[in-house]
Design a binder for these strands. Structure first.
Length: 807
DNA sequence: GTGCAGTAATCGCCTTTGTGAAAC
DNA sequence: GGTTTCACTTTGGCGATTACTGCA
């Protein structure tokens, strides 16, 4: 064979040559970029270099009738893989969830401040007398109650100046994480204009804002909550959380800027993006920048954008919580607290009402208990489903199947339940809570018929045919039509049924009954390479394959053929499908033990591997196995054999370990003996000033080792009783009572001797014993002398292990 | 301000039965 | 030499959904 610069070739190895002689090779001419001929083939140093990718792409190589075209990169460089996207998505979710927790903590701290006695004392000093007098009559009648709140709202409107919006929603893009790394301590928030609310260090600074009479909308609502509590109103601080979204908005292609984009560009500083208002932005900005007193009127106007913090007061006359917006002077107008759809700085997803924290009775200085936070979102939104979707992504099908709960649901349950469990609420408060929950639940159920087509999408009660998914159908066909909208029929959502292919039904343990016609046919889909080829071929022949879909009413439970004479019925692949436990053949047993199939084969027992699922890898579908299926009558025998085999294996393993241990000990001892021999025969010939030689005399290395170890022990503890090797020549100097090897020249280590010796030292020693009954400490030091009268304590002190001997 | 249609982007679901090398 | 175990690798297309824009 000749290879003219071929990359597949032939080293001049003799063996290779022999093999090559039997093969029919063909000479081919390689293009210049592969042979290295031409200018780019070798660099000046003579190293082989790669040709430019463009050259490869532009120069198709032709080998007789075969054309090879090297394609460029299939995926654009900036496009993320699915896995990268999943990682990014996970990161965003963690950021979102963390932000939610931090915001709740923030509002809980503020809520606690609103309940402090020192804060309320300052509040009382600023509230005019006539309002205080009016509020004292709040329990007299419904009108007095309402009037007290309205007077307070009016006074507050003139008293407090709004300087900013408070916390708002910001997108991921606005937080440049690279900058965070570099300037974390550089008050970056303020510099980037992301400081939406004032920094209040403690309750003193908080109440100082009341004296300064100005602050953000958030602060206004928080201080107003403190005022209401001061006047004896049962008040909750309500906050609509504005965390960073877990979803990234769709990135638009670069095109001519729209009108709105142009408007955005007009903004001078990032901070102004945080103040969206329906009233002219320019007016608000000018007023705010000037710092004149009228600027805040823009925030307080009834048509101003909705704030994210407000209050709720319990009205005993109507037995309901009523909302109070101190910023816009609104009372009991819950639906006006919902932000407009165009307001992207205020997304209503989770509204929490923080109750007044209880202070433990008789302990004024003690911290208040954790306050209860109730999810009251449904009271303030007409778009409940949208609020839920903004909270958190839906669980995937798999997550639902394995019983996961939404993170936000778990969190809200904890927030609502923790205080319920810990605080001492009277029956009245609990009843009030239950009633509120019922009221909120009914708000969801009694949704009015939507007025737009879009409103029917995902509606829990109603459905339109146009919104049915690919695998959905209205069943039965003669379902009663509830009404019409713009000429389209409205059906009950309960009659929307999901369809599946035969294979999908089998995975759910159901099988399509004989003679059933498919309800719907859709284009078949393929994922595996093999299936794709089949589909493509069918398409080219003009007969595209369609997938047949069936409804649950057309299926019945899957019943596998039974076991006969110990033989397990198998599918075409020699296995048993066991996607659900009900699919187990009658008379069979499922053994979920890995490797038991081998034993069954050895014993001549018929069995089949179990397929419980499929997974996808490299464009192929692979079955997921879990154990085997055998005939029920063989189960006991097989399990017994398995136990025996395991026992045998365990013993074998143990003896192997033991052999290994002996081997290592032998090696160590042999080494020591050789060392000792060398030392004895040649060591003494060394220099006389070698201290070791003089000191140890004829002692072997093993002896020296033991002495050194012994010496170390003496340095650490005068008496060692924990175990190991101890050589004892002097009774008074050492004692070993805890275990291990005791070598005593004069006496055997019987218990009486040990007790006697320990009693000699009793006056001096102490032992560490543990006392599990004592909650305050895990272990206590007992003075042995103090327990002189208790004979049991003597034993315990000895057996405890540590004896300190002053000798 | 609201709803609708169109567009673009994200994201979840569907699919459905291996292979070769190393270890035992 | 036969059998078992382990590692390999993280598709990709389509439909549903959502955000956004312009228009009525």
């Amino acid at each position: 064979m000749e290879a003219s610069g071929s990359a597949f070739p032939s080293d001049n190895d003799d063996e290779d040559d022999e093999d090559d002689d039997t093969m029919d090779w063909e000479d081919v001419a390689l293009p210049s970029y592969m042979t290295g001929a031409g200018s780019s083939g070798h660099d000046e140093a003579g190293d082989v270099t790669m040709a430019e990718p463009e050259a490869i792409e532009n120069e198709p190589a032709t080998y007789k009738d075969v054309e090879v075209v090297v394609e460029g990169a299939r995926r654009p460089m900036n496009k993320m893989s699915k896995m990268e996207m999943a990682v990014q998505r996970q990161l965003r979710e963690w950021m979102h969830n963390s932000h939610v927790v931090l915001l709740i903590s923030h509002f809980m701290v503020r809520n606690n401040w609103c309940a402090r006695e020192d804060v309320q004392a300052v509040c009382l000093s600023v509230i005019p007398d006539h309002i205080q007098r009016q509020c004292k009559n709040k329990d007299a009648s419904r009108d007095d109650f309402t009037m007290g709140i309205k007077w307070l709202l009016t006074w507050w409107h003139g008293y407090f100046t709004i300087t900013g919006p408070g916390l708002v929603t910001r997108s991921h893009d606005e937080y440049d994480l690279r900058e965070w790394d570099q300037h974390l301590h550089d008050n970056l928030l303020q510099r980037l204009g992301l400081q939406d609310t004032e920094i209040v260090a403690d309750s003193l600074a908080f109440v100082n804002c009341l004296a300064e009479k100005k602050g953000t909308r958030d602060l206004s609502a928080q201080l107003f909550t403190a005022l209401l509590r001061t006047l004896g109103f049962d008040t909750r601080l309500v906050c609509s959380l504005q965390p960073v979204p877990y979803r990234i908005p769709a990135r638009r292609k670069e095109s001519a800027p729209s009108k709105k984009e142009n408007e955005e560009e007009e903004k001078d500083t990032p901070s102004e993006m945080a103040f969206p208002l329906r009233t002219s932005r320019a007016t608000a900005r000018l007023a705010y920048n000037r710092g004149d007193g009228d600027g805040d009127q823009v925030w307080k106007h009834k048509k101003a954008k909705v704030p994210t913090v407000w209050c709720e007061v319990w009205n005993p006359h109507v037995q309901r919580w009523q909302c109070v917006d101190p910023v816009r002077q609104l009372y009991n107008e819950p639906l006006l607290m919902e932000p407009g759809v165009s307001d992207r700085r205020n997304l209503l997803s989770m509204v929490l009402a923080l109750e007044c924290p209880e202070r433990p009775q008789g302990k004024k200085r003690q911290r208040p208990r954790l306050c209860r936070a109730i999810d009251v979102t449904r009271r303030y939104t007409t778009k409940w489903q949208r609020a839920l979707s903004l909270r958190e992504r839906d669980l995937t099908k798999r997550e639902r199947e394995i019983g996961w709960q939404r993170w936000s649901d778990v969190l809200l349950n904890i927030l609502a339940g923790s205080a319920r469990g810990s605080a001492r609420h009277d029956a009245d408060v609990l009843r009030r809570l239950e009633r509120e929950q019922e009221e909120l639940a009914s708000l969801e159920k009694h949704d009015a018929l939507p007025s737009s087509l879009q409103g029917f999408r995902h509606h829990p009660v109603y459905a339109l045919e146009r919104h049915l998914k690919k695998h959905e159908v209205i069943h039965p066909p003669d379902t009663r039509v509830i009404g019409h909208i713009k000429g389209e029929k409205i059906y009950p959502r309960a009659n929307v049924r999901t369809l599946h292919t035969r294979e999908t039904w089998i995975k759910q343990g159901r099988v399509v009954r004989d003679g059933q016609d498919p309800v719907k046919k859709v284009a078949a889909r393929a994922v595996t390479i093999e299936k794709k080829r089949i589909l493509e071929e069918a398409k080219m022949q003009g007969n595209p394959i369609e997938a047949e879909l069936f409804g649950e009413w057309q299926t019945g439970p899957y019943i596998a053929p039974p076991v006969v004479d110990g033989i397990v019925p198998k599918n075409a692949f020699g296995r048993v499908d066991l996607f659900t436990p009900e699919m187990l053949p009658k008379g069979a047993a499922h053994l979920e033990i890995q490797g038991i199939g081998r034993l069954a084969r050895q014993l001549g027992i018929d069995f089949a591997e179990c397929v419980v699922d499929f997974e996808f890898m490299r464009g192929r579908s692979l079955p997921v196995m879990n154990g085997i299926v055998v005939a029920e009558e063989n189960k006991a025998m097989l399990l017994e054999a398995w136990r025996e085999q395991e026992h045998h294996r365990f013993e074998k393993e143990q003896s192997k370990q033991q052999r290994e241990a002996y081997k290592r000990w032998r090696k160590l001892l042999m080494g020591c003996m050789i060392d000792a021999h060398v030392e004895r025969d040649y060591g003494r010939k060394k220099d006389d000033d070698n201290e070791n030689a003089i000191q140890h005399g004829n002692a072997t290395a093993w002896d020296r080792y033991l002495r050194e170890e012994h010496g170390k022990k003496n340095d650490n503890d005068d008496d060692y009783a924990g175990g190991g090797f101890i050589r004892e020549n002097d009774e008074d100097s050492h004692s070993a009572a805890g275990g291990g090897f005791l070598q005593d020249d004069e006496e055997e280590d019987d218990d009486d001797d040990i007790l006697q010796r320990s009693k000699k030292r009793k006056g001096k020693g102490r032992a560490i014993v543990s006392d599990d009954d004592d909650d305050d400490s895990d272990s206590d030091l007992y003075d042995a002398q103090a327990d002189d009268d208790d004979p049991d304590s003597d034993d315990e002190a000895v057996a405890g292990g540590f004896l300190f001997d002053d000798d």
